[in-house]
Design a protein around this nucleic acid. Structure first.
Lengths: 127, 127
DNA sequence: GACACCTGGTTTCCAATGGAAACCTTGGGC
DNA sequence: GCCCAAGGTTTCCATTGGAAACCAGGTGTC
């Protein structure tokens, strides 16, 4: 069925490394971080403040994973107190366009989603 | 900075409902389910078999959330043993193009990601 | 009638993850 | 000596995830 020029990766196969990537991409904080960095490099705390709700622990974990995946870079400046800048790599840059489409979709279709939820909950209530 | 014609939703604000949507989208199983349904309606067990690694519990939870969000529909057929078909709604259909871009990105850029991981791990090993 | 089997779940149990808050480190300033 | 700031790490507890067992209800089989 899939005999085209596709790469030998199949995200539906649990043993496929592409699934590992999808696991990372499908982390809400990772998506938000990547999108946030589109505007240029950011330091740890300003990144944290700009994404309300993320804890320091989780943010540092997410940043480490993204760095390991080569999607962002981490640069330390020997200022007083040391400052650290995170920036998109070129690989990460190729992702952000797609991520932007996702966040844009979310913002655009919120009203429809909320309406659907209300309908669903109402139908349950009278059941 | 963002003073354009954007809707009054801000995914970076934890209190924004768009974040709830992003939470759902950034669920790896949800992404896989939505993409799988692009080919047409599927029944519970065939969906489960086609996405290796998902448990029954999690799949039914994901399907319930997606149905509540109005992204998929659930139709019961009174066959002998009852069969249940899940299908994309039109709202869900608007998402799948974006989702496809994400999975396609994952499959395309796997090699680069794996190389980055190897580099990262190597640099840690000699530290 | 007792038994096994099908789909489509729910329940149970345990391990892994997430988040809040406290703590640590390095280096000023006062 | 004391406090502060940046960038984390550690601790602790609650929530979530997954494997496997169980359930419902309807059919067929002996």
């Amino acid at each position: 069925m899939v005999t085209s020029t596709k790469p030998p990766y199949d995200v539906y196969d649990a043993n496929c490394p592409a699934r590992q990537v999808l696991d990372r991409l499908s982390d809400k904080w990772a998506l938000l971080v990547l999108d946030r960095l589109r505007g240029g490099p950011l330091r740890f705390n300003s990144l944290r403040r700009s994404i309300s709700g993320v804890s320091q622990k989780v943010l540092s974990q997410v940043l480490k994973r993204l760095e390991r995946d080569g999607l962002i870079s981490r640069q330390v400046f020997p200022t007083v107190p040391v400052s650290v800048e995170y920036a998109l790599t070129s690989l990460g840059g190729t992702l952000t366009a797609t991520v932007e489409l996702l966040t844009h979709w979310a913002e655009t279709n919120m009203a429809a989603i909320e309406a659907a939820q209300a309908r669903y909950d109402a139908s349950l209530a009278l059941a």
